[in-house]
Simulated scan of single mutants.
Amino acid sequence: VLMEHLLKRQYVDSEPDYRGWENTIDEQREQINLLLSESPSLKPYLESVFSDCYRYPLKKVSKNYPSVSFPQNCPFTSDILDQD
């Protein structure tokens, strides 16, 4: 969900939707960081599977926004959990 909403926010030109996507991004970051603080051993796992996790959100946003050109390779790194 985090990657999906980051993709929409960065690549879909739909200003009325920006605030909702940003709220979801903030909430997802908070939830993932909470989970990682409760189970720190998941952090290395997250980093090892991070780029593979991109396929699903890419498929979903590409289907929902066929006129938008999304990057085929993951433009994010695991530090997306720390960014504003």
Results as ranks from 00 to 15, higher is better:
residue 1 V to F: 10
residue 1 V to M: 14
residue 2 L to T: 03
residue 2 L to Q: 03
residue 4 E to Q: 05
residue 4 E to G: 02
residue 4 E to P: 00
residue 5 H to L: 04
residue 5 H to Q: 11
residue 5 H to G: 00
residue 6 L to T: 00
residue 6 L to H: 01
residue 7 L to P: 01
residue 7 L to C: 07
residue 7 L to Y: 05
residue 8 K to G: 00
residue 8 K to M: 05
residue 9 R to L: 13
residue 10 Q to R: 11
residue 12 V to G: 05
residue 12 V to S: 05
residue 12 V to K: 06
residue 16 P to I: 08
residue 16 P to M: 06
residue 17 D to L: 14
residue 17 D to P: 03
residue 17 D to Q: 15
residue 18 Y to H: 12
residue 18 Y to G: 04
residue 18 Y to L: 09
residue 19 R to M: 08
residue 19 R to T: 10
residue 20 G to A: 10
residue 20 G to E: 08
residue 21 W to C: 01
residue 22 E to G: 06
residue 22 E to L: 10
residue 23 N to M: 14
residue 23 N to K: 15
residue 24 T to Q: 10
residue 25 I to T: 03
residue 25 I to Q: 01
residue 25 I to L: 02
residue 26 D to T: 14
residue 26 D to Q: 14
residue 27 E to Q: 10
residue 27 E to M: 10
residue 29 R to S: 04
residue 29 R to L: 06
residue 30 E to N: 12
residue 30 E to T: 09
residue 31 Q to E: 11
residue 34 L to G: 14
residue 35 L to Q: 08
residue 35 L to R: 10
residue 36 L to W: 03
residue 36 L to D: 02
residue 36 L to M: 08
residue 37 S to C: 09
residue 38 E to V: 06
residue 39 S to F: 11
residue 40 P to C: 07
residue 40 P to E: 08
residue 41 S to F: 06
residue 42 L to H: 13
residue 43 K to P: 01
residue 44 P to M: 08
residue 45 Y to M: 13
residue 46 L to N: 06
residue 46 L to E: 07
residue 46 L to H: 05
residue 48 S to V: 04
residue 49 V to K: 11
residue 50 F to D: 04
residue 51 S to C: 13
residue 51 S to T: 15
residue 51 S to L: 14
residue 54 Y to D: 02
residue 55 R to I: 08
residue 56 Y to R: 13
residue 56 Y to S: 13
residue 56 Y to H: 12
residue 57 P to S: 03
residue 57 P to T: 04
residue 58 L to G: 04
residue 59 K to R: 13
residue 59 K to W: 07
residue 61 V to L: 01
residue 62 S to F: 02
residue 62 S to T: 14
residue 62 S to N: 07
residue 63 K to G: 02
residue 65 Y to L: 01
residue 66 P to E: 02
residue 66 P to C: 03
residue 67 S to P: 07
residue 67 S to G: 13
residue 68 V to P: 00
residue 68 V to K: 02
residue 68 V to R: 03
residue 69 S to H: 15
residue 70 F to S: 01
residue 70 F to M: 05
residue 70 F to T: 03
residue 70 F to H: 03
residue 71 P to E: 13
residue 72 Q to N: 14
residue 72 Q to R: 15
residue 72 Q to E: 11
residue 72 Q to A: 11
residue 73 N to G: 08
residue 74 C to A: 07
residue 74 C to R: 01
residue 74 C to V: 07
residue 74 C to Y: 02
residue 75 P to T: 07
residue 75 P to H: 09
residue 75 P to M: 13
residue 76 F to T: 06
residue 76 F to P: 01
residue 76 F to G: 05
residue 76 F to V: 08
residue 77 T to Y: 09
residue 77 T to V: 09
residue 78 S to L: 06
residue 78 S to W: 11
residue 79 D to I: 06
residue 81 L to H: 01
residue 82 D to H: 10
residue 83 Q to L: 12
residue 83 Q to K: 14
residue 83 Q to A: 12
residue 83 Q to R: 14
residue 84 D to N: 13
residue 84 D to C: 10
residue 84 D to G: 08
